[in-house]
Structure formats: structure tokens, C-alpha cells
Amino acid sequence: MSKVRVLILTGLGLNCEAETDAAFRMVGASPEQVHLLDLLEGRAERRLSDYRILAFIGGFAFGDHLGAGFVFANKIRWRLYDQLLSFIENGGLALGVCNGFQTMVRLGMLPGFDGDYRTPRATLAPNDRLGYRDAWVKLAVDPNSPCVWTRGLTTIDLPARHGEGKFLTETPEVLDRLESGSQVAVRYVGDNGKPTQDWPDNPNGSPDAVAGICDPTGRLFGLMPHPDAYLYPYQHPQWHRDKHRDGVVLPTEGAGLAIFRNGVEAAAG
């Protein structure tokens, strides 16, 4: 079987291309990094339709000036939207991490109600406690979610690294609908495994502890925490502790990889 082709959009202040590339490679896909400007100007000799998965990576596109992901999303909206919509229509998958999630929400790719992938209905607002913060969080996966990227997962620890991660919706009904459709694929939870509003377990104050959402098909998924920064088991903050503790079973791979593997398997199948 040929490898699943993944397009990683890069440039303009994005910065997680190396680890995203490594992640997709580790689960057997074939990622390619393409600068957004090359794609917009048609220099890349590639089109979105050449790929099964589109990765919106983390970083600070245009410094997050005028709002996280805004200027980058704006470029896509005015110059690449038709290609993007037909990519989605044709069954393509997309993963957005952090700045990439913000971009997908800005574009209206998420939540994508009723096949509408161009109307923004939510935003990632500044954290309640102002400022960027880097700390690991615990996420619970909604077992009923249609999200193909989180299939089979229950909980996952990942680093959250952002200043604008508070998921706010246009109206309360939008959040209700996301919940009832199990589109809230991942939530911040406390030590007891329950969704929490308490800082720092919920690092930004997102209502309903939303950490990431998918579209109704489950193929498009975005989240604030970084699966791309937990590729090796020993990256977990407790690994160098646990390896010395009697009776602790160490993981064999970084848990973030499971998300990439799920997406690649869904794209292949």
C-alpha cells in the first residue's frame, strides 16, 4: 500500500514543522512540508487534492498579531478557499494543533456544522490568566466522539503551550450543539479524570473544559495541546521518575503518536 501523503503547511512564523513531520513519518505516512506562499502562488506544483491529510501546525503565524491565527487564516480565506473546500468535500482529513487549531476555527473549518466550512462560529480568546504558558495537561477523550483522530483513546497527557486557548462560541447554542454531537473530542480534566474549570488543569478557562473539537464527520480535528511534543515515551515529565519506581509500567511510545496514527489509518482506510 502506498504511504498516506500529508501536507504540512509551513512558513510565515509557524514553527512546529520538524516535530509534525517526524510524527507523521513515525506512523508510516509520507509528509511534505510546503510553504504557504509557494502553494498560494502555484509554485509548489502541488495542489491540496494531491494529499489525504492537511496539517495546520503550531507556531506564531504573523506573530499572532490581530488575533491568533488571524493573518494566516485570512490569506487562506482570500486566496485558497476553493481548493480547501473541495479538499474537505472530497473526504480529506485535517489536523490543527495550537496555532493550527486557531487557524481552522478562524477559517470556519471547525465546527463545520451542516457542511458549512466557511462560517466562523467560535474563537480562541486570550487565556483567563493572561499570557503564554507551557505546562502539561491531562485530557479526557469523549468516547462517543466521531473524531477519527482520537479513536480508541481514553486519556492522554500533553503539553499545552499557548496564550490564546479559551474556546468561546458565538452563542451558547453553538456549544450545546458541539456537545450534543460529541464534537468536543477532548477536554481538560483534573486528577480525578473529570472535566475541570480550575487553573492550571484547565489552562485557559475554556467553558466546558474544551481542549479540542472535531467537525461532524470527525475527519477535521483541532486541539490546543501538542501531541507533536510527545513522540517519545521519555518526554513525559514523569518518565525519568517512573523508570525508577517499583511496579510502574513504562509506556513504549510517546502517547501523542496515537493521534497521528489514528489519522493516518483513517486516511488510508
Binding site: C16, A18, D134, A135, P159, A229, L231, Y232, Q235
Partner: peptide
């Protein structure tokens, strides 16, 4: 904590343990 210490996905023993 306001400084990123994990971007690039290469960090193993982090600044806070």
C-alpha cells in the same frame, strides 16, 4: 512557565521537574 520549553519536540528533561 511563560517561556516555551517544548517546541521542536526534542525536550527530554525539562527545566522544571
Amino acid at each position: 512557565r511563560h517561556y516555551d520549553h517544548e517546541v521542536k519536540g526534542l525536550t527530554v528533561v525539562k527545566p522544571w521537574i
